[in-house]
């Protein structure tokens, strides 16, 4: 089976599927496909990643380091989800370490190119930033649900 093109993949993935074809083509123009194997580190806590990743298939786990407890797994991300948005939103370095937990295909965007594209062409930039906002909002809801500890009463 032929590997789907980036444009084909963007048309299916949650982060990009609602964008116009034009926008997706523009994004595809600056995207690179990459295959990770289990254990590959995508971004490292505290370091700038310089790239934004969109997972096409497979899973990436996010861990945070807690002194005394070591790496604590806080979330696993899957197809259609983005990670390493820190430098795009202006943070200094990643807030978690992202590790592929299995063979994972990602679509990578270099930060400068991504920002350049969005800034120079608002018809692309605005909808893309909106999708990023939606992704962050979904992540926030999930985090809240985790915080609520809904199954606490079931734990002995």
């Amino acid at each position: 089976m032929a590997q789907p093109t980036i444009t084909e993949q963007l048309a299916k993935l949650q982060f990009t599927k609602d964008l116009s074809e034009l926008t997706r083509t523009a994004l595809a123009g600056i995207a690179q496909q990459r295959t990770l194997i289990a254990g590959d580190i995508v971004c490292r806590e505290g370091q700038s990643s310089r790239e934004l990743f969109l997972i096409a298939s497979g899973h990436v786990a996010l861990d945070m380091f807690v002194p005394g407890r070591g790496q604590v797994r806080i979330l696993t991300l899957g197809p259609g989800e983005v990670l390493a948005w820190s430098s795009i939103v202006g943070n200094h370095g990643s807030t978690a370490t992202g590790t592929a937990v299995e063979e994972t295909h990602v679509i990578a965007f270099r930060d400068e190119e991504f920002m350049q594209l969005c800034q120079s062409n608002h018809d692309v930039g605005y909808p893309v930033m909106r999708e990023l906002a939606k992704a962050i909002s979904r992540r926030l809801v999930s985090t809240r649900l985790q915080l609520l500890d809904l199954f606490a009463h079931e734990s002995a």
């Binding site: 899973h59 797994r73 696993t76 649900l145 985790q146």
Partner: peptide, 23 residues
């Protein structure tokens, strides 16, 4: 699972998120 353990190699996160990402 909401909270992983050292031995847990599976997914960490809440169930609605699995639905979000499912085709």
């Amino acid at each position: 699972v909401d909270r992983g353990t050292d031995a847990w190699k599976g997914n960490v996160g809440v169930v609605p998120q699995l639905l979000d990402r499912m085709p």
